[in-house]
């Protein structure tokens, strides 16, 4: 007779599920490729145009967040990783098999969240550190560079990976709430892209007050070593994004707990 199953066994089970489908592997590779590849592309472009850049541009230039620009694209890849890890269970119907094997539904949510967070944080941190180093190397000699020896810089690079990780959990939470891949990915994309456009309809003073709370703006705050006007400090931004994540995943978990399957 084997030992009693615990949350750890559920995590193990979810790990087997995660690594045994192609979409997870694709998502991970895409995250690396987008962060590092587009980071290199963007930093190269900045370098080649640097001589023609305005004085203002040069004065406000941030080599850290610029080298992390690839995360703006990778954030959709990690969102899809989170979404699909849930919605694939619904679209295939295997959610019933999963819940019959693990009737404690919250265990299933915790295990899935753990796997998504673990995979994405490892991948995203690797991607962010690599793209930072690659970016600074491309900048060196022409464009001002930053060093990881600077605490604020190190923090920015780390929090860029944390930002991607939290977004993947938001994607997972949306998947739990909406249960459909297309709907969840649309909402996820809207939160990052459409929300900033919608706030443009508001009066300028409102925009200044609200923009800083948009998920994508929180990301910018988290990966910038300096605080600029109308943005939050990195730690405040982190706190608020954690709050968003907890709410979305919490609502999703509550719905899973109460719903008929």
């Amino acid at each position: 007779m084997s030992a009693k199953p615990t949350l750890v066994s559920v995590v193990h089970s979810e790990w087997i599920k995660f690594r045994s489908v192609r979409s997870s592997v694709t998502g991970v590779l895409l995250t690396l490729l987008l962060t590092i590849g587009l980071g290199a592309l963007i930093t190269s472009a900045v370098r080649s145009h640097w001589s023609q850049s305005s004085a203002l541009r040069r004065a406000t230039f941030d080599p850290v967040s610029t080298s992390l620009s690839g995360t703006l694209f990778a954030q959709f890849a990690v969102g899809v990783i989170g979404v699909l890890f849930i919605t694939a269970e619904y679209s295939s119907g295997s959610i019933r098999t999963s819940l019959a094997a693990v009737p404690k539904r919250l265990h299933l949510v915790v295990a899935k969240a753990f796997i998504v967070a673990l995979v994405v944080i490892v991948v995203a941190e690797v991607a962010c550190f690599v793209t930072f180093v690659v970016g600074q190397t491309i900048f060196s000699g022409v464009v001002p560079t930053a060093s990881l020896a600077n605490g604020a810089v190190l923090r920015s690079v780390i929090l860029a990976g944390v930002y991607l990780t939290l977004l993947s959990l938001v994607g997972m939470g949306l998947g739990l709430i909406l249960r459909q891949s297309a709907a969840s990915i649309s909402v996820f994309t809207s939160l990052l892209l459409i929300l900033p456009i919608l706030t443009l309809l508001l009066p300028q003073s409102w925009q200044n007050a609200l923009n800083r709370f948009e998920p994508s703006q929180l990301g910018q705050s988290m990966m910038s070593p300096t605080v600029t006007a109308n943005t939050l400090s990195a730690w405040s931004a982190l706190l608020i994004l954690v709050l968003y994540t907890v709410v979305v995943v919490g609502v999703g978990a509550g719905m899973l707990e109460r719903r008929d399957h």
């Binding site: 030992a3 199953p5 066994s9 193990h12 089970s13 119907g93 094997a101």
Partner: peptide, 26 residues
């Protein structure tokens, strides 16, 4: 309940392994 309710991209063995792991079966 429904034989087709398995992730189509997963192999039969991995599907069963994941189930076995969740309940700590050998």
């Amino acid at each position: 309940l429904d034989a087709k309710a398995v992730h189509p991209g997963r192999s039969a063995r991995q599907h069963l392994r994941a189930l076995a792991a969740s309940n700590r079966l050998a």
